[in-house]
Design a binder for these strands. Structure first.
Lengths: 109, 109
DNA sequence: GACTTATATAAGTGTCAACTTATGCCTTGC
DNA sequence: GCAAGGCATAAGTTGACACTTATATAAGTC
């Protein structure tokens, strides 16, 4: 999970992840889009793959990559929990300061 | 917003953000917890401050830091949009695959 | 099998940033 | 004012990493 966060910290990797989001793409295709060398893209894809953020499959001589919605979803939920747990603590503390309780139900949307 | 993501990419900064999440803490207190030098903590806090992820106030000779829930909330919503927009694109692509057209318009955001 | 195309890996380079120690700046207590 | 505590800033070092070119591996074509 930390791997995924570190993978997303790099703007170029977010750009690449965007590209393979709606449809799978070949490495060369990605390299042409982002404007760096093909090895650079391969290295980024390796990082994304190790973070389980993309999946790959062979297509003849090419290799197609695409985003993995399951991992992306899991990461999103992790971040949601990360934030909300902290936010709820803050809100609880603020409320307790003036009158206490009753807002906990409002947090789950 | 990219600043906030880069700030959170560093595990040590997430650890620090966790520490100042529920209550404000002094720099020295944080340094003692995370096990690095005080200047290192000050530098991390500066990054977090520039990302608007923490606020600070003077307390005598000390300086107290704490997380800024508003920015954290904004970042959370940004990430939610980031994911959901991609997920909806995936859904669109899946639809287009079996019946075609009509999803192309939705892709330009 | 030789040639081409597509990608992965190797090796090298430069930059950035996380950390260190040293020092300066405030604030408080005497 | 002066000393001490608390933090920020300066300067330097080191390791990580994003990128490059060069080369190896794999698949398709003839």
């Amino acid at each position: 999970m930390d791997t995924a966060l570190r993978a997303l910290a790099e703007p170029r990797r977010r750009e690449i992840l965007r590209l393979v989001w709606d449809r799978e793409r070949a490495v060369g295709e990605i390299a042409a889009s982002v404007g760096v060398s093909q090895p650079a893209v391969s290295q980024h894809l390796q990082v994304l793959r190790e973070a389980h953020l993309v999946s790959d499959r062979r297509d003849g001589a090419r290799r197609l990559y695409r985003a993995r919605p399951d991992t992306v979803q899991a990461l999103r939920e992790f971040l949601d929990d990360y934030w909300t747990s902290g936010l709820s603590q803050l809100r609880d503390a603020a409320e307790a300061a003036e009158q206490s309780k009753r807002s906990k139900r409002r947090r789950e949307h």
